[in-house]
C-alpha cells in the first residue's frame, strides 16, 4: 500500500515535467508563438502521473484535447513535443498533428484527440488487439466528465465489458465541459455511477492526490492484466487555467473562490510538502528538480524554434495510409 521513495520521486518528477511543459506552452501561446488552440493540463497532473507510472512502456493510452500531460507522463520527449506544438518538422507528428493530435506510438501513446469522447473507442481497439495477441499489455482511455455524455464513450464501455477486455477507463472529472458546469449536462454527480450499467467496477479517488491515483491504477491495471476485465476510475480533479490557454479571452464561468480553493490543493505542492515532512525529500532537492526541468524546457523551446517547418512537398506524406505493410 505504501510507496517506496523511488516511486515517490518518479511520481513527483512526472508531475513537475507536466507543469513546466504546460506553463512554458502557455507563455508561448500568449506570446503568439504557437499556432492553434492550446488546452493546458495544469492542476490535473496527479491523474496522468499517477496512472502512467503504473503502466509499462508498451501499454497503450488514448488521450483527449487536453493531452500534453498524458504524453509527458508516459515519457514524452520535451524537444519533439515542443516542436510539434510549433508545427515544426522535428515534432512528434512532423508538425502535422499539433497540440490536439500529438502522439508517440513508440510510447504506446495513441494520440490526443480533438473530438470529445473519441479516444475511448480507440483504446478499446488497442485493448482488443492486446487481448488477441496475448502479450499482457493493457490500454488506458483518458477522458473527461463531458465525454461520458457522448455516444462513443458508451459504445466503447459497453464493448469493452462485453468482450472482457484489458482496459482501464480513467475519467478526469474536472467538473466542467468546456465552459459548462457538469450539473447542467447530467443528472448524476459521480461518473462512476455509470460503471455498473456496463458491468464493471468503478471507484472514485481524489484526483489531486497522486498517491491515491497511483494506488487505484496499480490495482485496476493488475486486474486488467490478469484477465479481470475493464474498470473505471473517476479522479475528481480541476484545471487551474481556463478551457483553452491561460486567460481564455477573460471568459468568466467559474467562481473565483472555487478556483482558489482547488489551487490550495495543488497536487504537486501538497505532495512535496508530504514528502518533506516524511523525510524522503528536501526543499533544496525540490528546487533542484524544478530548476533542472525548467532548463530542459528552455532547451526544448530553442530546439523547436530552430527547427524547420515542414516543406510543401511533404503536405500529403503520412496523412493517408498507403496500406503498405498493413494487414489486408
Amino acid at each position: 500500500m505504501d510507496l517506496s521513495p523511488p516511486v515517490q520521486f518518479d511520481l513527483h518528477r512526472r508531475m513537475v515535467r507536466i507543469r513546466v511543459f504546460e506553463e512554458a506552452a502557455g507563455r508561448l501561446a500568449e506570446a503568439n508563438k504557437l499556432p492553434g488552440f492550446l488546452h493546458l493540463y495544469v492542476g490535473e497532473e496527479a491523474v496522468a502521473a499517477g496512472v502512467c507510472a503504473a503502466l509499462n512502456d508498451d501499454d497503450h493510452i488514448t488521450s483527449t484535447h487536453r493531452g500534453h500531460g498524458h504524453l509527458v507522463a508516459k515519457g514524452g520527449d520535451f524537444n519533439r513535443m515542443m516542436a510539434e506544438l510549433m508545427g515544426k518538422s522535428t515534432g512528434m507528428c512532423k508538425g502535422k498533428g499539433g497540440s490536439m493530435h500529438i502522439s508517440d506510438l513508440s510510447l504506446g501513446m495513441l494520440g490526443a484527440n480533438g473530438i470529445v469522447g473519441a479516444g475511448s473507442p480507440i483504446a478499446v481497439g488497442a485493448a482488443f488487439a492486446n487481448k488477441y495477441r496475448g502479450r499482457g499489455q493493457v490500454a488506458v482511455a483518458f477522458f473527461g466528465d463531458g465525454a461520458t455524455n457522448i455516444g462513443a464513450f458508451h459504445e466503447a464501455a459497453n464493448m469493452a465489458c462485453a468482450l472482457h477486455l484489458p482496459i482501464v477507463f480513467a475519467c478526469e472529472n474536472n467538473e466542467y465541459g468546456e465552459f459548462t458546469p457538469r450539473s447542467a449536462t447530467m443528472a448524476i454527480t459521480d461518473i462512476v455511477d455509470r460503471a455498473a450499467g456496463y458491468g464493471m467496477p468503478g471507484v472514485i479517488i481524489d484526483g489531486m492526490d497522486v498517491v491515491a491515483v497511483h494506488e487505484a491504477t496499480l490495482e485496476a491495471v493488475a486486474r486488467a492484466r490478469a484477465g479481470g476485465g475493464p474498470s473505471l476510475i473517476e479522479a475528481k480533479t480541476y484545471r487551474f487555467y481556463n478551457h483553452h490557454g491561460i486567460q481564455n479571452l477573460g471568459l468568466k464561468y467559474r467562481p473565483d473562490d472555487e478556483v482558489a480553493q482547488w489551487k490550495e490543493r495543488d497536487p504537486i505542492f501538497t505532495f512535496e510538502d508530504r514528502m518533506i515532512e516524511n523525510g524522503t525529500m528536501t526543499r533544496d532537492r525540490v528546487d533542484e528538480i524544478w530548476a533542472g526541468l525548467r532548463g530542459e524546457i528552455e532547451v526544448a523551446i530553442k530546439f523547436a524554434e530552430d527547427s524547420p517547418l515542414p516543406t510543401p512537398d511533404q503536405i500529403l506524406v503520412d496523412v493517408y495510409t498507403s496500406m503498405t505493410g498493413a494487414a489486408q
Partner: peptide, 19 residues
C-alpha cells in the same frame, strides 16, 4: 454522498452504492 464508492470496489467484491 461519498459513501460506498471508494477503491475497495476495485480490490474486492464490495458493493457500489449509487446516488
Amino acid at each position: 454522498p461519498n459513501a460506498g464508492k471508494d477503491i475497495r470496489r476495485l480490490v474486492t467484491p464490495a458493493t457500489h452504492t449509487s446516488d
